[in-house]
Design a protein around this nucleic acid. Structure first.
Length: 442
RNA sequence: GGAGGCGUCGCCUAGUCCGGUCGAUGGCGCCCGCCUGCUAAGCGGGUUGGGGUUUCAAAGCCCCUCGAGGGUUCAAAUCCCUCCGCCUCCGCCA
C-alpha cells in the first residue's frame, strides 16, 4: 500500500499516478472521506474507553472494601456507591461496544480503499501504454540466418528434433499450455538453474527454495490479488494460492519482522515453479512453451533501505544482463511505461530476448522496484542505526525464467542440422557438452 | 489422524489456578550518562510496535498491541470457544 500520509498531504500526486496507470483516480477522494470518518470514530472510542477504564479502577477497591468491612453502616454506604458506579459502568459498556463497532467498520472501509491503490509511479518512468516504453539499449549479436544460409526453425521444431520438449504429451496429460522437458531439455533446465544460482550466490545472494503454495496474506501483501487476481491459481479447499513467482514467498519471508538495518540490503535468490492461469490471453502465443501455465524460474529479491532502491534496481538489471550476456543471447532493455506496470511496481525494466522465428524481441526477464509498497502491506520494516523503524523497499528481478530462456537459447544458437550450440559459460553445467545434437532417428 | 504440553515487549523469563492499580516482573543483550590513566568491573537511567492529540520540534497525554479471532464480564495476559504455530508421545506414509 502507499503511505496514507502521502494521500492526505498530496492527494493530487496519488490521483495523477492512478491516472497514469489507467486506473481509477476517484478512489483517492473516497479514501480521504473514509479516513476522516475512521479518525473521528477512533477518537470517540478512545474517549469512551478511557472513561470506562477510569471507572473500572474504582469498582475493584470498593468491592474489596465491602468484603473486608465489619461495620454494617460502612458496608451499606459502600454498597450504595457501588450500585451507582455499576449503573454507570453498564451503560458505558454498551456505549463502548457501539463505538467500537463504528470504529472498526470505518477502519475496514478506509483500509480496503487504501489497498485498492496501486503503487506510486516513479517520476522517471515513461508515461503511456504498452507501446510507450523507452528503449534503454540493445545488446549482443543477432544471428544472421541469411548469411548463415539456412532458414531458422522455431523452438517447437527444434525441441522435437532434439528430443528436448514434448508439447503434445504435455497437453495430453495436463492440457494446453503444458509441456514436458525431456532428455537434453530436462538437463538443460537443471544446468540453467544451477548456473543462475551459482552466479547469484557468487554475487552475494542467499539461495532459497521457497514454498510455492502460500496463504492469502502473502498473496495479498505482494499485490497479486488486485487486478492480477484472475491470473492466480487458488486451492479452494485449503485456502492456499499457487505462486506465479518466487517473488511472493521471498517477499513474505520477512513478513511481520523488523530487520536490523545493519544487515541491509538482504538479497535472496529463489528457485520455484511459477503458475499462471493466463486468463485473458487466449489465442496469444499458443505455440510452444513461450506462454505456459507452469514454468520454473530463478528469481532475485532484495530488501533494502528506501533511499538505496533506485541504485539497487539498476544492480538487479545489471545482474540480469550479465546472465543473458553469458548465455550469448541477443536482447534489448526497455523502461516499461506507466500503464503497463504491475500494481506493486513503481518502475520496471524488462529484458527482451531476440526471437528469430518471430523476428522480434520478447520479454525474458524483468526487474521491478516496488519501493515500500509491498513492505507496508507485509509489515516488513528495518531499524536504522538511530533507532528509526520504517518500511523497507523491496525489489525483484528474474534471473532465469527457464522456458523462455530455452526458447531464446534454442532459436538463437541453432545450426542448419537442427543441433544447438551450448554457450561456453553453460558447458560446465552440462558436463562439458558443446552441442545438443538431434536424436539419431525419429 | 489420536493423546498431552506450550505460545508474554531482541533473547530468556515472572504473572494465568483465586479477572481490576499488569503495557505487564527479573536477567541477558543493546543505548545514554557517571566513574575509572587503558581494558575489565561498578553506578544511574533508558530500551515492543502502531494509531491519535499537541508542537517548528520534542516532551506530555489518550487509545490499541501478552500467537490470531470470537465470547463471558462493569472490567480479560488471566475465564470459555474456534483457529494458527511449536514441542513430546502414538498411529500412518513419502
Amino acid at each position: 500500500m502507499i503511505d496514507l500520509r502521502i494521500v492526505r498531504d498530496d492527494p493530487e500526486r496519488v490521483r495523477a499516478s492512478q491516472a497514469a496507470r489507467g486506473e481509477d483516480p476517484s478512489i483517492v477522494d473516497r479514501l480521504l472521506v473514509a479516513d476522516e470518518a475512521r479518525r473521528t470514530a477512533s477518537q470517540r472510542y478512545d474517549e469512551l474507553r478511557n472513561t470506562q477504564k477510569t471507572l473500572g479502577k474504582s469498582i475493584g477497591p470498593l468491592q474489596g472494601r465491602i468484603k473486608k468491612s465489619t461495620n454494617d453502616v460502612d458496608r451499606d454506604i459502600a454498597h450504595n456507591e457501588l450500585d451507582v458506579l455499576m449503573g454507570r459502568a453498564t451503560t458505558l459498556s454498551d456505549d463502548v461496544k457501539a463505538a467500537e463497532g463504528v470504529r472498526d467498520e470505518a477502519a475496514q472501509i478506509a483500509t480496503a480503499l487504501l489497498l485498492e491503490l496501486s503503487n506510486l509511479i516513479d517520476d522517471d518512468a515513461p508515461r503511456g501504454g504498452e507501446d510507450d516504453f523507452t528503449l534503454i539499449g540493445e545488446y549482443g549479436v543477432r544471428p544472421d540466418f541469411v548469411s548463415l544460409g539456412f532458414e531458422p526453425r522455431d523452438h517447437v521444431e527444434l525441441g522435437e528434433i532434439l528430443g528436448a520438449i514434448d508439447i503434445e504429451r504435455g497437453a495430453k496429460v495436463s492440457g494446453s499450455r503444458f509441456y514436458y522437458l525431456t532428455g537434453p531439455g530436462a538437463l538443460l533446465e537443471l544446468a540453467l538453474v544451477n548456473f543462475a544460482i551459482a552466479r547469484a550466490t557468487a554475487a552475494g545472494f542467499t539461495p532459497m527454495i521457497p514454498p510455492s503454495l502460500v496463504k492469502p496474506a502473502a498473496m495479498e501483501g505482494t499485490g497479486f490479488l488486485g487486478q492480477a487476481a484472475e491470473n492466480v491459481y487458488r486451492l479452494e479447499a485449503d485456502d492456499l494460492y499457487l505462486v506465479g513467482t518466487a517473488e511472493v514467498p521471498l517477499a513474505a519471508y520477512h513478513m511481520d519482522e523488523i530487520l536490523d538495518g545493519a544487515t541491509m540490503p538482504r538479497r535472496y535468490v529463489g528457485y520455484s515453479p511459477s503458475f499462471r492461469r493466463e486468463a485473458g490471453s487466449h489465442g496469444k502465443d499458443t505455440r510452444g512453451i513461450f506462454r505456459v501455465h507452469w514454468f520454473d524460474k530463478v528469481e532475485l529479491f532484495s530488501f533494502c533501505p528506501p533511499e538505496e532502491a533506485v541504485v539497487e534496481h539498476r544492480r538487479l538489471l545489471q545482474w540480469e544482463q550479465e546472465f543473458l550476456d553469458a548465455l550469448e543471447i541477443p536482447y534489448r532493455v526497455i523502461d516499461v511505461a506507466s500503464g503497463d506496470l504491475g500494481a506493486s511496481a513503481a518502475r520496471k525494466f524488462d529484458c527482451e530476448a531476440w526471437v528469430p522465428s518471430q523476428q522480434r524481441y520478447r520479454e525474458v526477464t524483468s526487474a521491478s522496484n516496488c519501493t515500500q509498497f509491498q513492505a507496508r502491506r507485509l509489515r516488513i520494516r528495518s531499524r536504522s542505526l538511530d533507532g528509526d523503524v520504517a518500511p523497507v523497499a523491496t525489489l525483484n528481478g528474474t534471473l532465469c525464467a527457464v522456458t523462455r530462456t530455452i526458447v531464446a537459447l534454442f532459436e538463437n544458437h541453432q545450426r542448419p542440422d537442427g543441433s544447438v550450440n551450448v554457450p561456453v559459460a553453460l558447458r560446465p553445467y552440462l558436463g562439458g557438452l558443446e552441442t545438443i545434437e538431434p536424436l539419431p532417428t525419429r
